[in-house]
């Protein structure tokens, strides 16, 4: 067991190290693609903390990305350095998640999901009408705020950190309590789990991580608008990645994010498919729900088990 953990830690350190030095030996295009995949991993894994581990499916996560992004832009325009704006954005996203968490977590299952669609919509509508935030046309980052290398390193390291956080949580008492809430909330309450506080806590944690990613998103694209960060499609993609990959696991969301990142890059090169990319995702979601609710990871595990069985029994 300990050797397995040591191996995992070594693996993660190796990946982090490789990514840290990647800007010096990889091409810019490849780095850009890696950045997008890292963003997808961050979003999918953060969502999975609440949606997978605790089983609370939220379709309003673009709100947190947007809060992080807007905080960074608004403060950068006042001359605040990213070192301060990024944590502040994360903090505000977490704060917002607590404010909406207390009323919406009184709802269970699908009712919670519907309420989160509403939260996302409300935030987008409000953001479009705030004049200090540029209204519907959005805001541009101040000149000179762009630094690709440090942004690349922050985003990829954040992605690796998220995998580590997810692993740590899945093995902790906190993780067990979350999974108890997912399996049977009444039984968990009866065993002394304060389900509301637990859900609010994990919601805040994942919102903060998404908020951090939002700040990096703003710096990388140098421009934010309600249409880019509060888009409903973004919320959709955040939900689809972990579900297609394998909801509630550590590796599933990463797998889903890599698949989506890859699909996105493939689709972007075919203009005819670009506008209807969500068609493919929708079809994937239907297929996963009907045939393999545990996602790609479940499929891989099933095929692997079958191969092992063939190997040991049939041979």
């Amino acid at each position: 067991m300990t050797s397995k953990r040591a191996l995992e830690a070594a693996g993660m350190l190796a990946v982090a190290g490789a990514l840290y030095f990647a800007p010096s030996f990889l091409e810019r295009g490849t780095l850009n693609d890696l950045w997008s995949v890292a963003l997808a991993v961050v979003l999918a894994s953060s969502w999975n903390l609440l949606g997978g581990f605790a089983g609370q499916v939220s379709i309003g996560y673009s709100a947190f990305l947007g809060i992080g992004a807007y905080t960074t832009v608004l403060l950068a325009l006042q001359g605040t350095p990213p070192v301060l704006t990024l944590p502040l954005g994360a903090l505000l996203a977490a704060g917002f998640s607590v404010i909406i968490g207390y009323p919406t977590f009184r709802l269970r299952g699908p009712y919670f999901t519907i309420a989160t669609i509403g939260v996302g919509e409300a935030v987008r509508v409000v953001a479009s009408s705030l004049s200090f935030a540029g209204g519907a046309s959005g805001l541009r980052m101040p000149a000179g705020s762009y630094d690709f290398e440090s942004n690349f390193r922050s985003m990829t390291l954040l992605a690796v950190a998220l995998v580590w956080i997810a692993l740590a949580i899945s093995r902790s008492a906190f993780g067990s309590a979350l999974s108890a809430v997912r399996q049977d909330i009444d039984a968990a309450e009866a065993l002394g789990v304060n389900s509301t506080r637990l859900k609010v806590t994990v919601h805040a944690l994942s919102a903060a991580l998404v908020g951090l990613a939002g700040g990096l998103f703003a710096i990388n694209f140098q421009y934010v608008s309600p249409g880019s960060v509060f888009d409903f499609r973004l919320s959709l993609t955040i939900v689809l990645m972990p579900i297609v990959g394998g909801v509630g696991t550590v590796a599933g969301p990463v797998l889903g994010a890599i698949l989506f990142g890859w699909l996105q890059l493939k689709l972007l090169s075919i203009p005819a498919l670009l506008s209807s990319s969500l068609f493919i995702y929708g079809a994937l979601l239907i297929a996963v729900m009907l045939f393999e609710p545990k996602g790609l990871l479940g499929l891989v595990r099933r095929l692997w088990a079958r191969r092992l069985r063939r190997f040991y029994i049939d041979a």
């Binding site: 379709i59 959709l236 579900i243 969500l278 068609f279 079809a283 979601l285 239907i286 729900m289 009907l290």
Partner: peptide, 9 residues
Amino acid sequence: LLLFGVWLV
């Protein structure tokens, strides 16, 4: 989620 997929399609 299934009907969500139908909506997307």
